[in-house]
Design a protein around this nucleic acid. Structure first.
Length: 272
DNA sequence: CGGTAGACCTGACCGC
DNA sequence: TGCGGTCAGGTCTACC
């Protein structure tokens, strides 16, 4: 589910609800997540105020007033949901509940690929994100550095876009959409790109991410922002799960292949 | 070291 | 109605 636009959408909403608010108590389910809070974490979290909610890679990073951090990753099916106390009734797959004064933030995740854990200071956070690449929504993208990283690898462009140590924020849907927008083939090798092509690819990534953000992310099956609002970017998909694409008033066939276990959709005629 | 299958899970959907 | 197969937005690991 959630790629960068969905994570950003969640964060923007969350910030408006929890910034400056105090966590009264925490509870968690017994079910195993990729990473889950320990009971020892509870005392470092409860009675703490939330200073900020920010994004690092596809993680939601919540800073507390004792410089502890809560890291949340939505995995494939995770959501953070907002409930006024009186509206909450426990649902299947609710795994973590943060209790505030008159509302709750609930981490719900059917497939449990998500993560919810604590890091005890900023240093730990920095170390955790040490290996991540350039954030595509950052204003300080250095094309030359990325070009070096790309050309020193010999993997398909599709795989490279999913590799968060190269570029941060693209997932399977947006990889397909960005490659189509750039008219580059997902099968091309990173080592074959020239600087102009990489520049085009990155600007296409930024374009699809920003467009999606503007539309509140994509709602496929189950993604919703914490208040239940649906995103609408899925209506703008050009190739993902499509059979044909219209380009300059002509229709082109979309081919579906599998690369590294993930579905790739592209137009062999238009993407070279 | 680099690269690639497989693992981790539940649920929705499709064909029989 | 039920059952089996396939597929899904993302990382990790184990192994060559």
């Amino acid at each position: 589910m959630p790629e960068l636009p969905e994570v950003e959408t969640t964060i923007r909403y969350l910030t408006s609800k929890v910034k400056g608010k105090k966590i009264i108590s925490i509870s968690k389910s017994q079910k195993k997540l990729r990473k889950n809070l320990n009971f020892d974490d509870f005392e470092s979290i409860s009675q703490r105020k939330i200073i900020s909610v920010e994004r690092f890679a596809k993680y939601i990073v919540i800073r507390l007033d004792n410089d502890n951090y809560l890291l949340v990753h939505l995995g494939m099916s995770g959501r953070l949901k907002f409930y006024l106390n009186k509206n909450y009734k426990k649902e299947k797959h609710d795994h973590v509940v943060l209790q505030f004064d008159n509302f709750k933030i609930v981490f719900n995740d059917p497939r449990r690929f998500g993560m919810f854990f604590r890091l005890e200071d900023l240093e730990k956070v920095k170390i955790f994100f040490d290996n991540y690449g350039t954030d595509l929504l950052s204003n300080k993208i250095k094309i030359k550095d990325i070009y070096e990283k790309f050309t020193s690898k010999k993997v398909s462009l599709k795989q490279a876009l999913l590799d968060q140590s190269l570029l941060v924020g693209i997932g399977n849907i947006y990889a397909n959409e960005a490659l189509f927008h750039s008219k580059l083939s997902p099968l091309r090798l990173t080592s074959s790109l020239n600087l102009a092509e990489l520049t085009k690819l990155i600007s296409s990534c930024k374009f699809v991410l920003k467009l999606s953000l503007k539309n509140g992310g994509s709602s496929i099956n189950d993604y919703k922002s914490p208040d239940g609002t649906l995103g609408s970017f899925q209506r703008l998909f050009k190739v993902y799960q499509k059979k044909h694409v219209i380009f300059k008033k002509k229709s082109y066939k979309i081919k579906k292949i599998v690369q590294n276990g993930r579905s790739t959709f592209f137009s062999p005629a238009l993407q070279k």
